[in-house]
Design a protein around this nucleic acid. Structure first.
Length: 278
DNA sequence: AACCAGGGAAGAT
DNA sequence: ATCTTCCATGGT
C-alpha cells in the first residue's frame, strides 16, 4: 500500500542514521529499509516522494501492522510543534539544520534493551561490531534482514559463550540476566508501552546492568518517548562541547541548566546533537 | 603508549 | 546519600 504525509519529512536523514547500524537493511540508492516485524515478516518501507511531499510505498504489510509502522517511523504527526519550541532556544541553528528528522523507534523492544547494554562505555564502531556479532550468532535472518534472538535463547547461555565474541564478563552477565527476567515473564517490556517514563525507568534500573543511561536510551529509542536527555552520554557531552565552543566537555550541572528550556522535547535535542557529530 | 568510549556496580566515605 | 574506584574491551 501507499501512504502520503501532509507534512515535511526527511527520510534521507532517517536512512542515513539507520545505516550506521550494520544490522539494518538500508538501501540508500533505493531509499528503502527492510523492517523486521514481531510476527516474523519483513515490511519494506520505500520512499516514493520527496521530503516536501513525502510518499511511502509499504510492501508486505500484514493485517494490523500499519499502525506499528506509522509509530516506528513517526508517520502520524508533523514535527511543527517541536521546531516551533526550539526556534527561540540556543539550539535553534541545530534544529533548523535537522528539520523534518523524526525519532525512529528501534524495531524490537528487547533488541533496544540489549543494544543499549552492549553499547555501554564502548566506542560506536566496536559497539556496532559487538551487537552485530551477537545478533548474527544467536538471532536469525529472514527476507534479507536480521532479527534479534528470542530472550529465551540468550537466557540459556553462559557468560563464556558471550566472552568468546569479546563481551566483557560483566556485560555478558547483564545481557543474560535481563534475558532470563524477560523469558520468565518477570520483566514484561511490552507492558512498558502504557507506563509513564519514571515508572519504566524505576523498574528497569532495578535490574543489574541497567543504569540511568540505559533506561533513558530504552525510553528514547525503544519506546520513542519525546522527553529524554541521557546526561551521562559521552557523545552528547562532546556534541555540546562543540556546539558551545568549549575547551572541555560540559559538566552535568551545566547541561542540566538548559534542560528546562528544551523540555518537553529533550529527545529531539539529544537526537540532533548526536547527529551533529556522526 | 596512553587515553578514550552513546556506563554501571561495588566499595569507601 | 554521594563520591571514588574498578571493570574489560577495541579504537585512535
Amino acid at each position: 500500500m501507499q501512504i502520503t504525509l501532509p507534512f515535511h519529512y526527511d527520510f534521507d536523514r532517517v536512512l542515513e542514521r539507520l545505516s550506521l547500524d550494520p544490522l539494518h537493511a538500508v538501501s540508500l540508492s533505493d531509499k528503502s529499509i527492510r523492517v523486521p516485524m514481531a510476527s516474523g515478516n519483513v515490511v519494506v518501507v520505500k520512499a516514493a516522494g520527496s521530503s516536501r511531499r513525502p510518499v511511502f510505498e509499504l510492501e508486505n504489510l500484514e493485517e494490523g501492522q500499519l499502525d506499528r509502522i506509522k509509530d516506528i517511523f513517526h508517520f502520524g504527526s508533523s514535527l511543527d510543534a517541536v521546531n516551533a519550541h526550539f526556534a527561540n532556544t540556543n539550539l535553534s541553528a541545530l534544529f533548523s539544520e535537522h528539520q523534518g528528522t523524526p525519532i525512529v523507534r528501534e524495531f524490537s523492544l528487547y533488541g533496544s534493551l540489549m543494544k543499549s547494554i552492549i553499547h555501554q562505555q564502548l566506542n560506536l564502531s566496536f559497539a556496532h561490531t559487538l551487537t552485530s556479532r551477537f545478533v548474527r550468532t544467536f538471532g536469525h535472518e529472514n527476507d534479507g534482514v536480521w532479527f534479534y534472538p528470542a530472550p529465551e535463547t540468550i537466557a540459556r547461555l553462559r557468560p563464556e559463550d558471550l566472552r568468546e565474541m569479546q563481551f566483557s564478563t560483566r556485560k555478558a552477565e547483564y545481557v543474560i540476566g535481563l534475558s532470563e527476567a524477560i523469558a520468565s515473564g518477570k520483566l514484561d517490556l511490552d507492558r512498558m508501552e502504557s507506563k509513564a517514563d519514571e515508572e519504566v525507568a524505576a523498574e528497569l534500573v532495578s535490574y543489574r546492568g541497567v543504569g540511568p543511561w540505559t533506561a533513558q536510551s530504552f525510553l528514547l529509542f525503544g519506546l520513542g518517548r519525546p522527553n529524554l536527555f541521557p546526561i551521562a552520554d559521552i557523545g552528547l557531552q562532546n556534541a555540546l562541547k562543540i556546539q558551545w565552543q568549549l575547551q572541555e566537555k560540559p559538566k552535568a550541572e551545566e547541561i542540566m541548566r538548559h534542560l528546562p528550556d528544551w523540555s518537553p522535547y529533550l529527545s529531539y535535542a539529544a537526537l540532533y546533537l548526536w547527529r551533529s557529530i556522526e
